[in-house]
């Protein structure tokens, strides 16, 4: 056997071999843990990073592929500005109303002392309802609150009330808002319930013990503690409504000038066809959504520090 150490290589004992293999196995094990996340990163790269990058690049190009800022200048056209305003208005309205409705339900099941069974039922229902959006939801509303919908007909035949004579229209801004609120409320329940569960009973008792009324407790403690979570939840609802496409398209067929519908029209290319303008519109959406996500994460961090 040649003397390895004599050849200038480090001399390793049996113990040295064992510790080397142990170290190597430990490193492999450590790296293998990341393998579990591989599908997520592949998905993220293929369906988010690449499309978003190509969209951003496309927004700075004209039809021939040359660099231009015209697409962004076109964003200032009145119909596009109005489209952004309507979308922001719809998203904000449904986020606030859905948030309020969801908060009341979540409060009732978390702090209202209702039986555990009701809490489980509402949580499960919220999980299902918050995902019930798009074309099925639009048709569900058409079949209940459309001109020939079940409830519309029922109200007319039994009570003699014509919903549409009262000014209600399912295919208008408020009709679309009502449809969005259907999935915004359960989403709010799911998001805000952990924050309400984190509200310690002892805070209420301590403030009561120090002579505070219920109003003083909510004014000084309850609302300030919940505010970051509430704001974060409303921002998430805003983002949820801002990106919704299928529900609005199936219900109004493009009657309401929303940004996602406008982007679809620009890229799909029926009458309007300017994919690069569509990319610029989408880039504007990305900026708004990114700002929402950053605000959401910051507020979540703030509230998790308090409610832990």
């Amino acid at each position: 056997m040649p003397d390895i150490s004599a050849q200038g290589r480090p001399h390793t004992t049996d113990a040295g071999h064992i510790s080397f293999f142990r170290l190597y196995a430990h490193r492999i094990r450590r790296q293998a843990r990341w393998l579990g996340l591989a599908p997520f990163f592949i998905f993220l790269f293929a369906f988010m990073i690449i499309p978003a990058s190509s969209l951003i690049v496309g927004s700075f190009q004209d039809n021939t592929g040359a660099l231009t800022f015209d697409n962004f200048i076109h964003l200032l056209k009145p119909n596009i500005v109005s489209s952004y305003l309507i979308t922001i208005n719809l998203s904000a309205t449904t986020a606030v109303l859905g948030g309020l409705g969801g908060l009341l339900i979540a409060y009732a099941i978390s702090l209202g002392g209702l039986p555990q069974g009701i809490r489980s039922f509402v949580s499960t229902f919220s999980g299902v309802a918050s995902n019930f959006a798009g074309v099925p939801l639009a048709f569900a509303f058409i079949s209940t609150l459309g001109r020939a919908g079940f409830i519309t007909v029922l109200l007319r035949s039994i009570f003699g009330i014509d919903l549409y004579d009262t000014g209600f229209n399912l295919y208008s801004f408020w009709g679309l808002s009502l449809t969005y609120i259907y999935f915004q409320i359960p989403l709010m329940v799911l998001i805000i319930q952990p924050a309400l569960d984190g509200m310690k009973k002892e805070w209420r008792e301590a403030s009561e013990n120090l002579g505070a009324s219920a109003f003083q407790y909510w004014f000084h403690v309850g609302i300030p503690v919940l505010l970051p979570s509430l704001s974060a939840a409303v921002i998430l609802l805003f983002g949820n409504a801002f990106g919704a496409y299928a529900t609005a398209y199936a219900l109004t067929g493009g009657l309401i000038n929303l940004v996602p519908i406008l982007i679809g029209a620009q890229i799909r290319g029926n009458v309007l066809h300017d994919p690069n303008l569509g990319y610029a519109l989408a880039f504007g959406m990305i900026i708004i959504m990114t700002a929402s996500i950053i605000a959401y994460l910051w507020l979540q961090r703030l509230s998790s520090r308090w409610i832990k």
Partner: peptide, 28 residues
């Protein structure tokens, strides 16, 4: 409880998380 004028200390402290120590002490 608010009218009994008793001080209570809880097992898990029950300090108001949105207030500093000074604000907590001065709350009552």
């Amino acid at each position: 409880p608010a009218r009994r004028k008793l001080g209570m200390v809880f097992q898990n402290y029950a300090l108001f998380p949105n207030m500093t120590a000074r604000k907590n002490i001065g709350f009552g």
